[in-house]
Design a protein around this nucleic acid. Structure first.
Lengths: 235, 235
DNA sequence: GTCCTTTTAATTGTATACGATAATAGGCAA
DNA sequence: TTGCCTATTATCGTATACAATTAAAAGGAC
């Protein structure tokens, strides 16, 4: 009928989407530093595909704000300005309470269970050592916010949050001081507790405070350095 | 960001972006009916470019939700389902008050003047006859909402509204009953009046009612038919 | 040694070529 | 006719080729 159908299509994975997702993950997990040049040839070699598919992936990421494409110069991992960083978090402060209230009516036992499973995963990673665990923790932290958006049942809100969470990671990579929001996990837990008690407004307050804490950890001056292209995919 | 930009008469203009914008405008102004197939060859012939650029444009539009790309089948003007339509308007109801409150502190004489100029343009088009005026009216109506978002100064909110407004046009094209929100222009005016009086909450209420009216005009059953590909660009 | 010009190399922009997939038409049997 | 199977055609998916642009290097002049 309409495009509402997800259409499982082929069991053969879409290689173009795979490249896009791989690069996005590398950016979000901060294996690729902001400003890193993403040469079409180099990326293509890494994934053993032609520039055609790489260009498509980079274009997609540019739409998400994770990559900047400069005409005749190439694509670079986005390097969010201070203004952009502030707008990203300002928008999150506006959107996340709205999402919580929208999700509230759909929250039942199953949803709480789902969120608690994510919390458990976060905790598991927190107690783990090493860089890979830190990266997974970044992703898991974002997944929590996305899961709440998913409960709202509004696909558009989900997409918006998707973009905001991804770009937030980039901002944190650039301007974050402490390694990770170890407090963040605790705050996630409090939010779920409030939701379980049907205290939606309380959850909103906690969410705003949570975002405040993340933003407070930013130092909007320095610029960190990260790994190069080959490093990010350890090839 | 529609083609509001006056005249980038530069011969170094990005041809790919031009194609994308042209197709988007055709979709938003309803010269291209939902469901219309956008064959890469045909579109390329129309614009005298290769499939390469057409593919890029169609991919971009698919991110915006204006086009659906089906693997190995091609691209089609999006055909929003009833659920999608409801989510689009639900999201607008959530976002637009937020945007109004965010814009409020930045509203001064200049901003009111700017909005009133848009209202004047809307009125001018309303009093005009013919299909082209109707199309321009659709665009002008959307531009009003985008202008409010622009005043907020938040580029991310602007992008979100951009997408929502464009997709709304598509939904109205599909499910709209009366030709145009003639009441809509009046409601825009009331919103500006409220903003001028610094009555932000009043403006929010009016905005919500405005969106309600638009949505009330939808008949979420029938599917209209529109012009074909060549028609839309009268080539 | 520094600055400027010229040449060279590397990278992107766009078109084209070819293989793969799906839609279509034609033929055959029931 | 209707239904099914096969052959054909059209369209998409991806790689490659060539042109255009930019960045870098080499060579002088001062």
């Amino acid at each position: 009928m309409t495009s509402a159908n997800p259409a499982p299509a082929d069991n053969a994975i879409d290689i173009g989407a795979h490249i896009r997702d791989a690069i996005r993950e590398a950016i979000v997990e901060r294996r690729l530093a902001p400003g890193t040049k993403l040469s079409e040839n180099d990326v293509g070699s890494l994934f053993n595909v032609s520039r055609t598919l790489v260009r498509a992936a980079l274009q997609a990421l540019s739409y998400e704000g994770l990559v900047n494409v400069e005409k005749n110069r190439g694509a670079f991992v986005a390097y969010p300005s201070v203004t952009e960083a502030q707008q990203i978090f300002a928008t999150r402060r506006l959107l996340e309470p709205v999402i919580l209230r929208e999700a509230a009516p759909h929250i039942g036992k199953a949803q709480i269970k789902e969120l608690r499973e994510l919390l458990a995963e976060e905790e598991r990673l927190t107690n783990q050592r090493g860089a890979p665990a830190r990266r997974a923790e970044i992703k898991a932290s974002g997944d929590f916010h996305l899961a709440v958006a998913a409960i709202s049942g509004n696909a558009i809100l989900m997409r918006f949050m998707d973009e905001l969470v991804a770009r937030s990671s980039l901002v944190i990579a650039l301007y974050g001081q402490s390694v990770i929001s170890s407090c963040g996990h605790n705050e996630h837990q409090q939010i779920v507790d409030a939701l379980e008690k049907k205290d939606v407004e309380g959850a909103c307050t906690l969410m705003l405070r949570h975002i405040d804490h993340i933003e407070a950890d930013l130092d909007l001056r320095l610029t960190k350095k990260g790994g190069g292209l080959r490093d990010a995919f350890h090839v």
